[in-house]
Amino acid sequence: MARTALTPQRFATTGLAPSYVTPDAAGVSLRSSGKQLLHVKNGSGSSVTVTLKIGKTVEGQSVTSPTVTVAAGADQFFGPFSDNYEQPDGTDTVFVDFSAVTSVTVACLSL
Score class of each variant (00 low, 15 high):
83 D>K: 13
79 G>P: 02
86 E>F: 02
66 P>Y: 05
92 D>W: 00
98 F>H: 14
74 A>P: 03
65 S>C: 06
69 T>F: 08
87 Q>K: 11
94 V>S: 10
79 G>N: 04
92 D>M: 03
95 F>W: 14
92 D>T: 04
96 V>R: 06
78 F>K: 11
70 V>F: 01
74 A>C: 05
96 V>W: 05
66 P>D: 03
73 G>H: 14
91 T>V: 05
70 V>W: 03
89 D>T: 10
69 T>S: 15
77 F>L: 06
77 F>E: 01
90 G>L: 06
95 F>C: 07
71 A>M: 09
82 S>R: 09
74 A>Q: 12
75 D>E: 15
78 F>P: 12
70 V>C: 01
84 N>R: 12
87 Q>L: 14
67 T>D: 11
76 Q>A: 09
70 V>H: 03
88 P>C: 10
74 A>L: 04
71 A>I: 09
97 D>W: 00
85 Y>E: 02
93 T>H: 02
67 T>Y: 07
75 D>C: 04
91 T>S: 13
95 F>H: 15
72 A>F: 07
79 G>S: 02
83 D>G: 06
76 Q>H: 11
94 V>C: 11
72 A>N: 10
79 G>V: 02
72 A>V: 05
73 G>I: 12
85 Y>K: 00
83 D>P: 03
94 V>R: 06
92 D>Q: 06
91 T>D: 14
77 F>P: 00
94 V>L: 07
81 F>R: 01
71 A>F: 05
67 T>R: 10
67 T>I: 05
92 D>G: 02
89 D>S: 10
74 A>D: 13
85 Y>M: 00
82 S>Y: 09
94 V>E: 09
85 Y>I: 00
73 G>V: 11
78 F>S: 13
97 D>F: 00
71 A>D: 15
92 D>S: 09
96 V>C: 08
80 P>A: 03
87 Q>P: 06
83 D>M: 08
70 V>T: 01
74 A>E: 14
70 V>D: 03
98 F>D: 12
90 G>A: 03
